[in-house]
Structures are given as structure tokens and as C-alpha cells.
Amino acid sequence: MSPRSTPTTSQSAWSGQPQEDQADLAALLELSQAMLGAQTAAEVEEVLTRLSVRLLETRYALFLRYWQEQDVLRVTTQAGQYAAELGTVLYRGQGLSWQAALGPEAVLRVHRDALPPQAVLQPGTPRQSALFAPLRTSGGRLLGILTVGRIAPDFTRRDETLLATFANAGTVTLERIYQTQQANATRDGALLALGLALEARDYETQGHTSRTVTLAQELGGRLGLEAAELDALRQGAYLHDIGKLSVPDSVLLKPGPLTPAERTVMQEHVRTGEALVRHIPTIPAGVLAVIRSHHERWDGQGYPDGLPGEAIPLLARIFAVVDVFDALTHQRPYHAARPIEEALALIRAEAGHHFDPAVVAAFLELLGDGASEPTPAPPTP
């Protein structure tokens, strides 16, 4: 055989396979690649319905998500030609979707000329054949139903196999997403508990942790942070003052000014906090940056490292504004709560001194105060 006639690896892999098999493999490859990029349940449902219509050449595809609390199936995603299915709710036992959910088949197949009485038909839709593929975990948990329909030609065994494979891929991806969400919820609960442990010492008003977490997320979103950065910012907000657990009450709760020695003890909490949190497995670097650097100042006069300007990590610059604002507007052992307008004026005055000016601008816009004129910085005594 001459070099010219030697088949490539790709050609060898495809040679001898029916064209239909090649199309099926291509469809499954496209589905698996799309599933890899799905990060939410809604994205999984969109991939399943969109690709079912295109790759199975169906008239429509619907995804009915199972809501365990209400014990219902609800149409949450649709693709192709459809009427008013989106939002339709099916109670247990109602319709062919529930028949598929409760039955043993991997795919329920119904011919358009043999629709049973329990079929739920939207007004104005033509009679069509349909396939129903339940998404069930290995433990038997129902996640939803993927259903497709078309008027002609009739569905084949190949169509059933492909839809069942699509449903299996969706099940695996949804399980991964739900497990990640559960792990994140457990983690956030643990981090919140640590923040509340600080509040229990009464050095901050109740709710400081939750408020700063929420406001930091909103500000980070306005500044265009990516999902991973927002996650690190949220974790950092939960843990930003964890090092204060090692600060004596005589310093932490002192109502008057701190002595130089006491101030040194207080400032050490950022290093202590960073050292403590480093022991949490897989903690993002951005979390450590928030803990260590949220008391740095734009003018380089902050602590613990005296970082100036953009040398301060961005997440720490963002959280610094949120932390100070919450401290100003709520009662503390060493000062009374200030009105929001007064606190915003102080934040605005410190842009370019204490805070990153761009972060301050975004913060003022977030709170609806961006149109106000800048307030001159108060004179240094």
C-alpha cells in the first residue's frame, strides 16, 4: 500500500461504520461537550431540549423538572415548536410524563394514533407521537422528564436509545451540579457560623456578617467579577475578621481609643486570621487576600503591609468599602450609628485616600448616590 493510500487514524476509526452510527456518535460527542460547560440546572435543561430537537429532528422538546416539595412536574424549558407548555404543572399521576416517571421503562413511547385517555394535550396542538425519558439517579431519585414529539416519521428504536442516552447524560450532570450546590451550601453555613461566633462576643451589631456578605456580592457583581471571584469574595466576607477571635475582650470591646500597644494587638488579627484560614483545604487565594488586606488603604497608610493603590488585591479593595460602610451605619462599642447619607459622604470623601476611587464610584451607584457631588475630605487635625 502506498503512503497516499494509507488511511489516517480518523478514517480507520470511521471506516466500515454505517452512516447512521457515525451520526449517532457525532450527536453524543456534541452533547457531552455541551454538558461539560453546563454549570446550572437551567443550562442542562436548555442543552437537552435544544439538542434533542436538532439531533433527533423532533418537532418539539420539553423538560419537566420534578419539584419534590410540591410533588409535581413543571415544564421549565422548551425548544422547537410548542404552544403554551412552559410553566405547565402536572400533579402526581397526571399525564404521560407521570406515567413515564412512575413506570419501569427507560423511555415511554406513545404513537400519535394511540394516545391514551390520560394524555394531557394543549389546545390547538396537532396529534403527534412522543417519547418520554425520565431522569433518575442511581438511588432512584427523580430529577425530571425529557420529552420530545413529532408528527412524522414515527419514532424508531434508535430514537429511543438516543433519547435515553441524552437523559442519562443529563442525570449525571445534574447530580454533579446538585452535589456541588449542596457542598457549597454546607460550606457557606459553616463559614457563616464562624462569622456569627464573632458577633456573639458583641463587638459588632448583630447581622454584620450577613449584611457584608450580601452587599459585597452586589458590589462585586456591579464591578463585573467572574463567578469564581464572587465566590472568593463571599467566603472572604464570611471570614474577614476571624482573627479577632484571638483578640482579648479588653481590647476588642474597649469603648474608648486604643493605646499604641492595643492598636498593635488589634491590627495583628488580619495576620492571625489569614494563618487560621490557610488550614482550610482548597481555600481560594482571593479569600486569604480579603482577610489579610481589607484594612489596607489606597494611599498606602493601611496595615499590615502598607500596600498602595492597585497593589492591594481587588477583592480586598471591594470589601474594604463594604466593611467600613457597615461599621459606620451600625452601633459599635466605640461609636454610635451614623445616618446612611452621612456614611456615604464619608466614603465618597475617602475615594483616592482610603479607598479605590473606582470601587467607591460603583458603590455609590449601587446605593443610588452616584449623582451626588463629591464631598471634600475633612481637614487633618
Results as ranks from 00 to 15, higher is better:
2 S>V: 03
246 S>Y: 04
314 L>W: 00
354 H>I: 12
59 R>F: 13
41 A>S: 06
72 V>W: 11
29 L>W: 07
242 I>H: 02
1 M>L: 06
163 L>F: 06
37 G>H: 13
361 A>V: 02
375 T>G: 11
114 A>C: 14
363 F>P: 01
150 R>G: 06
273 G>L: 03
45 E>H: 12
117 P>M: 08
10 S>L: 14
166 F>P: 10
294 H>W: 01
145 I>G: 02
282 T>A: 11
364 L>Q: 02
359 V>E: 01
302 G>C: 10
213 V>N: 00
25 L>M: 10
303 Y>A: 10
10 S>Q: 13
146 L>G: 02
351 A>N: 03
97 S>L: 06
154 D>N: 14
340 I>Q: 15
133 A>C: 10
371 A>E: 13
280 I>S: 10
274 E>A: 09
194 L>T: 04
300 G>N: 11
259 T>G: 13
265 V>K: 00
332 R>A: 08
152 A>N: 08
187 R>F: 11
221 G>T: 08
311 A>C: 09
184 N>G: 06
344 L>S: 02
126 P>G: 11
5 S>C: 07
71 D>I: 04
66 Y>S: 03
3 P>Y: 06
361 A>T: 07
360 V>C: 08
36 L>W: 08
367 L>M: 09
268 E>L: 13
264 T>C: 13
25 L>I: 04
32 S>P: 09
310 E>P: 15
182 Q>V: 12
76 T>C: 12
76 T>Y: 05
375 T>S: 12
187 R>Y: 08
10 S>A: 15
304 P>R: 00
199 E>Q: 08
206 Q>A: 12
173 T>V: 03
183 A>M: 08
24 D>K: 01
37 G>N: 12
24 D>S: 10
59 R>H: 13
179 Q>P: 05
311 A>N: 06
229 E>Q: 15
205 T>W: 01
312 I>Q: 00
237 A>I: 04
319 F>Y: 05
145 I>R: 00
369 D>S: 11
252 L>R: 02
77 T>E: 01
195 G>C: 05
207 G>V: 04
162 L>T: 00
108 L>G: 01
242 I>V: 15
268 E>P: 09
162 L>D: 00
321 V>D: 00
374 P>S: 12
215 L>N: 05
129 S>I: 07
105 E>N: 07
294 H>N: 05
337 A>P: 07
110 V>N: 01
12 S>V: 13
146 L>D: 02
229 E>M: 13
104 P>D: 11
92 R>F: 10
